[in-house]
Write a protein that binds this DNA or RNA. Sequence first.
DNA 1: TTGTAGGCGTTATCAG
DNA 2: CTGATAACGCCTACAA
Lengths: 341, 341
Amino acid sequence: MKKKSNVTIHDLARQLGVSSSTVSRALKNHASIGEETTKAVKRLAEELGYRPNFLAVSLRKQHSTNIGVLVPHINRPFISSLVSGMEQAAREAGYSVLISQSYESHDIEIGNASAFFNSRICGLLVSCATETTKYDHIQQFKESGIPVVFVDRIPEKEDCYQVMIDNREATFKATEHLIQQGCRRIAHYGGPPQQLMYRQRRQGYIDALAKHGLPFDENLLLTANKLTPEEGFVLAEQALSLANPPDGIFAANDNTAVSTILYAKSKGIRIPQDLAIIGFNDDPVCTIIEPNLSSVHQPGVEMGKMAVKQLFNILDIEITDVPKITILDTYVVPRASSVRS
Amino acid sequence: MKKKSNVTIHDLARQLGVSSSTVSRALKNHASIGEETTKAVKRLAEELGYRPNFLAVSLRKQHSTNIGVLVPHINRPFISSLVSGMEQAAREAGYSVLISQSYESHDIEIGNASAFFNSRICGLLVSCATETTKYDHIQQFKESGIPVVFVDRIPEKEDCYQVMIDNREATFKATEHLIQQGCRRIAHYGGPPQQLMYRQRRQGYIDALAKHGLPFDENLLLTANKLTPEEGFVLAEQALSLANPPDGIFAANDNTAVSTILYAKSKGIRIPQDLAIIGFNDDPVCTIIEPNLSSVHQPGVEMGKMAVKQLFNILDIEITDVPKITILDTYVVPRASSVRS
DNA sequence: TTGTAGGCGTTATCAG
DNA sequence: CTGATAACGCCTACAA
């Protein structure tokens, strides 16, 4: 039987001739309610199509079951996977996911955080805008006891819950992979250095060179602001028009790596023979571009799920013991763009 | 001054020696409150960091400012663009977006709809699961006066608000494009025919053939369940191993078109000379694959924004006059996979 | 122009 | 085992 579901516990109570507190308790299997009563309540609830009003519950309990998710963009492969994982894990536990995009703008991020704060989310998952270096807008959550978990893009020195990868190690492996393929002059496309992640990625590159006794040439260290495909072409041109051009390129994302492949091919440069290339993220394009692009895989969906699990852990909803900082594994996926078999 | 923002209108009222209703009214510039009072209230609110509690407002008003978004998956290019547009338009108006994925499962879709219903969303934007052919789970919203806007994947015969494209026309143009490039035996990969969208796409194909006097050969009409890349390979093999193989293929999405390009190339079939190919969606891969894939562009972000605008229109939040059915423009993007210059 | 009172639907506390 | 009662924070007749 379906009814205009404005059925409240009071309606049930009236029809059953009991009080609404009894109904409330029966509905959540409170031990102290008689079996008979409980069954009767539940039957009628079912029959009338009773649905608890989350708004009222939240108001009463002083917090909702909505998790706020704050990311730079959702229409990017890695991030949409991240969000997908979050949504899935949250929903399985009966929580909902509220999303907002900062478009990499710190100001928008502040506004969105504020909106989330007002709507009384029970927890916040953030992947910061590139611009973001201050975290006052996050502070308010901590002060109000609302847990915050940072994902992927982590603040510099904050003591905070994090789900991430070991960027340094990941890029170390990527660079080492190129070295193992015989590259001796390896260029790196880095992202904006104010973002910790990109400094770590650069460090892995530098460490790998050092370990293998290769000289570090700062001409080979290029940086871009947003690592867009367009910027990729510019970087490629810069790198390949050097007097002494590189024989390998490690790009901090797949966008720029793909552009480089396209550019190099247009110049008649053979990949991977003349130039080996590896990217980062393992986006779907990697298996489309020719030659297929080697990349570093990071587990987006998993990271999203872990972030939610972390949140639940803090909220004591799940009692699994999750460390404050979770670091998920990455691995190099070698493909034709770098493998000189 | 920042405070643990549990500041309520009552706190303000007490400190100012007025009643909380005065504060409530002052805060929203109610005409009947004295200028002095209003200013004082606002100043103190600012000073104490007062934030309205949306939960309470929503409970009182009987509806929230959260928009529910129900899609099959978010980590797909077209859909993530759709959601991105929705998020943007909603947030600009001070609304939030709650997302959930059905994973193309009707049962999950029902569950998610139910969760949304309980959380008192103020409106629902849906793109249905492929499996979905019944709409009882949507009905409850309409009955409770919660507006529903369907996007992209539209129910069969329901009388409902819609934001979509003209699938028949779009595929008509795509097929005609192939014909204009000299194709005479054109195959079509369709999606599951229980989904209206795919029947429309098939119809456009058929109509185009008819208009140009080309025979319809049902051997050339292939269908897949999910149009995944993997299925794309199967379809490609089927199509190209026909006794009388096609000289053009129109695929109902880019995934399968891309697989077909890869398959054809592996068989030494020249594209577009031997086989011209066009896809649907204009995903980013189109400009990565070689040859670049022609496709039909549909404006994902725009569709998302329009859906929100439609919702606001129904809710009388914006008074722009939006028709019940919005059909956005598509266009063929001709690229190397089909242009025989 | 402002205040009072009641209620949105639920749960927690305290009595019985 | 069950029932009143009072919040949670806000809004809105109605009254003053």
